Amino acid sequence: MAHGDITHIDIPVSDLGRGAEFYSALFGWQISEPPGFEGYPMWRAPNGISGGGLAPRDDGFTQPRSYVEVDSIDDTVAAAVAAGGHVAREKSPITATSWWAVIADPDGNHIGLFEGIAEV
């Protein structure tokens, strides 16, 4: 993946098991919980390239969220804020070599950011 590519899509579900069964049956996605990511089933599409995760639905996360790979979350957040957006979730580590954050555009749409090397 390269800067600007959509790398991951999180889908909020109220029941992780039911969500995994639904999407696996509907689209043929392979869904599993990799070691270190228990409670966060990740899906891989049949093309072997696209994927994402199923995450617990809550009041702040009710719609699927796409994640875009960036060279620097810090620089991208600064540019988003300068352009009229805001930070919806601060930068947080995923692994020792990767991070994520969420920005909102001026209309309130949430876009996830990914920086680093995915280890799963």
Rank of each mutant, 00 (worst) to 15 (best):
D15F: 03
I31Y: 08
P56N: 10
D71C: 01
M42G: 11
E33Y: 06
L26D: 03
A78F: 09
V70I: 07
E21K: 15
T95S: 15
I117S: 11
I6S: 03
V102M: 14
R18D: 14
I49Y: 05
S72K: 04
F114A: 11
P35T: 03
G108N: 11
T95W: 02
I11K: 03
Q30P: 00
P12H: 02
Q30Y: 00
E69D: 12
A96F: 07
I103S: 13
A96G: 15
Y40Q: 12
L54M: 10
P106F: 10
D10H: 06
E115M: 04
E90G: 09
Y23S: 03
A101S: 12
G85Y: 07
I94D: 12
F114H: 14
A104T: 06
I94F: 09
G108A: 05
R65N: 06
G112I: 03
G39E: 10
W100N: 14
L54N: 04
L113N: 08
D5A: 15
A104I: 03
I103H: 10
G60Y: 07
I6V: 08
R89Q: 13
F114L: 14
M1T: 09
G48C: 00
G4W: 02
V120A: 15
A96S: 14
H3Y: 02
R89D: 09
S72I: 02
W100A: 13
S14A: 13
S32W: 01
E69R: 15
H110Q: 14
Y23E: 06
I94G: 07
F27E: 07
I11G: 00
L113D: 09
S24A: 12
A2V: 08
E119Q: 12
G116A: 11
S72T: 03
I73A: 13
W29Q: 02
Y67W: 09
A55D: 06
E90C: 05
A80S: 13
I94W: 04
N47H: 02
H110I: 00
K91R: 15
A55L: 07
G36P: 07
P106C: 12
V120R: 12
V70G: 05
P64W: 11
H3E: 14
A104R: 05
G60L: 09
D15N: 15
Q30E: 07
H86R: 13
S98L: 08
R57G: 01
F37Y: 07
E33C: 07
L54Y: 04
A20V: 01
E115N: 09
P12D: 05
E69P: 00
D105T: 05
V120F: 14
D58R: 07
G17V: 07
H3M: 04
G48Y: 00
H86G: 10
D75G: 05
D74I: 08
A82W: 09
D59P: 00
S32I: 06
P106R: 07
V87G: 04
E119H: 00
V102Q: 15
A96C: 06
D15G: 05
D15Q: 07
S98A: 15
G85N: 11
G85D: 14
A118F: 10
A96E: 14
